[in-house]
Write a protein that binds this DNA or RNA. Sequence first.
RNA 1: GGCCCGUUCGUCUAAGGGCUAGGACACCACCCUUUCACGGUGGUGAUACGGGUUCGAAUCCCGUACGGGCUACCA
Length: 507
Amino acid sequence: MSKRVRVRFAPSPTGGLHLGGVRTVLYNYLFAKKYGGDFLVRIEDTDQTRYVPGAEEYIFDTLKWCGLEPDESVQHGGSYGPYRQSERKESYRRYAEQLVQDGHAYYAFDTPEELEKMRQDFKTPENPSPQYDQTIRMKMRNSLTLSREDTAALLAAGTRHVIRIKMPAGETVSFTDMIRGEVSFDTGTVDDKVLLKADGMPTYHLAVVVDDQGMQISHAFRGEEWLPSAPVHILLWKYLFGLDQMPQWAHFPLILGPNGKLSKRDGAKYGFPVFAMNWADPKTGERTEGFKEKGFLPEAFINLLALLGWNEGTEQEIYSREELIEKFSMERVHSSGAKFDYEKAKWFNHEWMKRVDVHRLKPEVKALLSEKAIPVPDDKLLEKVIGLVKDRCTLLTDFVEQSSFFFATPETIDTGAVKPKWNEAKQLFFAELVRNYELADTWDAHTLENNFKEIASVNDLKPGELMLPFRIMLVGGKFGPGVFEIAAIIGKTDTIKRIETTLQLLK
RNA sequence: GGCCCGUUCGUCUAAGGGCUAGGACACCACCCUUUCACGGUGGUGAUACGGGUUCGAAUCCCGUACGGGCUACCA
């Protein structure tokens, strides 16, 4: 009886995909998969002036990285295409004309200059932004104020015009939002939105309704910023296809930045990424760092986004994609906005770092190290190192600092950390340690530690005071896993070499 | 200004009439660790305000305040 679940994500390809966009994708995806439905991506490129090369490609790359692949799209195919609105141009005019025929819309010939003049003329302190609505439409140049003949003549002459919806007076439009419950509007307070632009392209308002119907969308999800124009869309459904055909709506709460709505433009200012992946604006050349390049795992990114506005009602916080599909429910999506907390985001990533296994991390770490020109001799060694340090990496990029000393001699040695307490006895100790290690025929952490402690005790020195210097010698700084583990991995030659190098520096 | 949405620790949230208001991040302290982390224990910290409804309200209703969104031939 009920329709097959079909949902869509409808981005306009004008730039990078930010947090809120990805979360909208996620909730769409989870909902579709939970009910065995289809998730499709429709490109809303009806504004030709805002075309940004590469943006469409970027969106699909992002979805791929996130593991949220559509079932249908310009890239994935499907039987409801085209999935790019610019390629569906022809279908919209017909509907707009039909609305005019039925008296629900009208032709408007006002030029941009005239509209600007109207906004100036009617601007008052009480009404700072006058709208093209029922109170002023009879004062403008449109098929409502012009005679039938004049209108026909203008049209015949090819005069530039738009088609506007004629919002009825004194009606209440209401609908049930899956998240907010019943929401209602007084049609008299909504303006006569443009449906078809002068260039023949539809605006979002017309296109979303026509395409949702054409693509048999069962549930229409979008951000809360669309709530104010919902009555326009409801009316369009009523006039064009009937309310019984209309999808169910849900408006997601906004994700807020430190001050209000997360803005693409503020990308760099927050001190944390807002885009999923790096985005380079082709016009300005401006680069914005993404979560991916910042060192986030897609598993963590999805996880944190899911919990930003949805909660199962338990205390669980770590969810895999599969688990999210199983547990997600639209009823438990919040109605209030959520401020993004980068500290918590990093915590999610760290949790995933700890959970995920070495092989999952290997390709990423390998790429990262090679990017930094750090030589990795063999995979087995790399696996061992990853296993040893991954728990202390919050971000993928932390691997550089946490593991490079395994593969290359540290560039700088923090001798300052040991110099104040350095003395002759310690110098002699390490000289003896070198002689001892040179003769060692088993090279494992345990043996190394035993020999180290034995020499210390023979010389009446406390091992604790010698371990920090040893660490500095091998690692270069005060961090990393157990020192003897490190020595075991870097091997006899390098261990001895590093001790001697630092010994020289400390003399 | 108008319209719409919202309001539990600093942040994300749990508790959908009965409570010592729970958890997580962050912060602080201690423990563990002869580094740095991980981990463990504990602590600081919230129902915006005012009215109702009710035996009883964070929970339901109204008002106020505050926050956010929209107010383009952009989405």
